[in-house]
Amino acid sequence: MLRTLRAVDFRCFSGLSLEIPAAGAVFTGDNAQGKTSILEAVCMLVRLHSPRTRRMPAMTRMGSGSGFGIAGEAWEMERRVRWQGGLDLMVDGEPREGPGTYLADGGLLVWMGNEDLDLVRGSAEGRRRYLDFIGSQIEPGYRTALARYRRALKAKNLLLKDPRPREEEIRSYEEVMIADGSLLVDSRARMVSLLSPRASASQQQVSGKDEALGLEYRPAGGADLRAAMEQARERERRQRQSFVGPHRDDLLLTVNGLSAAEFASEGQQRTVALALKLAQGEALAAARGSLPVYLIDDVFGELDPGRRNAVLHALPAHAQKWITTTHLGWLEESHGLGGMNRYTVKAGEIS
């Protein structure tokens, strides 16, 4: 869990300092006041990841200069992230040379938000990000393999667009894609096996109905990435882009055997999104033997009482929870939030 969180020039906060009990905290306020940014700061501190942007400058407070800093006591370690054109990472006062070493002994996180509905309705890219966020927390070498694969893919695509493609160079990048892509495919297959029974059970628990949620991993290169690239070679050279590999994978979601995106009702789709995130938390705990922290952004106020209470009941009682909401009207009907600090957030100020 996190005991403290401090930030300087992050999003709308010139300064931020919080002490959080083991149970967690509830942050209340209108939209666009800074509530989500608090959870984002936690995500950056723990996983060097923002669910809102890939651009570090976007997280720097407007008009403050060229960087931001986040620090805090997390899992009994003092961790610090500073960005000023590059990342400066420290743990217990000792510098960490790169993200890999910084994340190696970091904690686990689950982010839950209304945008999770895109996991069901949106493109395959969102579902790949869902798997990537899990993989980077529980699979050794996953984050490194993903970064190498993306660099090789970018280089290959640039070469394919050349009027006179250099075949030898293309094939050298394909070798990198095959090596790292195969690791990603194997890891994603293991993750889906870990997630499937847990997501199915969560779907029934949250919906209160006998709904069968199915997860099927569909690797774009099949079981043999090298053979798939050979088969796609002529098409890729003709259309000048890469069609085969983990960057085209998908996770098929079904409810009672039918596509959740096409045939599930809005209520069912929301339940699927919740079930996927609850399953993520259980999978992380099973793989690493410790509970994740749950960052829950403006979810409970949008749920009907039945699903809200089901989700609260499904969350591990001893896990720390950071919750944002625009109002507390729903809180009187729910249980399981005892011992949590409550804060009001207004225009980047917390009381």
Rank of each mutant, 00 (worst) to 15 (best):
G222T: 12
R3Q: 11
L153M: 10
K154M: 13
L252D: 09
C43D: 05
L295R: 06
G85V: 12
P21W: 01
G141R: 02
Y217M: 03
E78N: 07
L274T: 00
G135R: 01
A74C: 13
Q137V: 08
Y130S: 06
Q239G: 04
K277A: 10
M340E: 06
Y102A: 10
S50F: 00
L160F: 08
A212E: 14
M177Y: 00
A152C: 08
E211M: 09
R54C: 10
Y142E: 07
R80Q: 14
A201K: 05
S64F: 08
D132E: 12
A314S: 13
W111I: 11
W83V: 07
G69D: 13
E97I: 13
A145H: 07
I170S: 01
E302K: 09
P140V: 12
G348W: 04
L315M: 08
R47P: 04
Y173Q: 04
A273D: 06
D224T: 09
L45K: 06
S202H: 05
F27K: 07
R79D: 03
G221L: 15
P163F: 08
S242K: 04
Y173P: 02
R233V: 11
Y102K: 06
M112G: 02
F300D: 04
F263K: 12
I178E: 15
G208E: 11
G257W: 09
K346F: 11
Y343L: 04
I296G: 03
V81M: 10
H247A: 13
D105A: 14
A287T: 09
P316K: 00
R11N: 05
D250S: 15
G67R: 02
R164Q: 12
G98N: 15
Q204W: 04
G122P: 05
A223V: 12
T326I: 10
K154N: 09
L253R: 03
D250N: 14
L2P: 01
E230R: 14
G181F: 01
Y142L: 09
T53P: 03
S200D: 13
R47H: 10
D30V: 09
R238Y: 08
A32K: 11
P51T: 00
L253Q: 06
R79P: 02
M191F: 02
L16N: 01
W75G: 08
E175N: 05
T254M: 08
H49Y: 13
E40Y: 00
N114V: 14
L195H: 05
S64G: 08
M77Q: 15
S200N: 15
W330A: 06
F68C: 01
P140G: 06
T4I: 10
E230F: 07
G100K: 08
T254P: 04
T4A: 06
L153N: 01
W75P: 00
R11P: 03
L158Y: 06
A286T: 06
G141L: 11
V91K: 02
S17H: 10
P140Y: 11
T53K: 00
P305F: 09
L103E: 09
E236D: 15
V255S: 00
E169S: 11
R127D: 04
S196L: 11
A32I: 12
W330F: 14
G15I: 04
G67I: 10
E262F: 13
T271A: 15
F27H: 01
T60G: 05
T101W: 13
V244M: 12
R143C: 10
V46H: 02
M59Q: 03
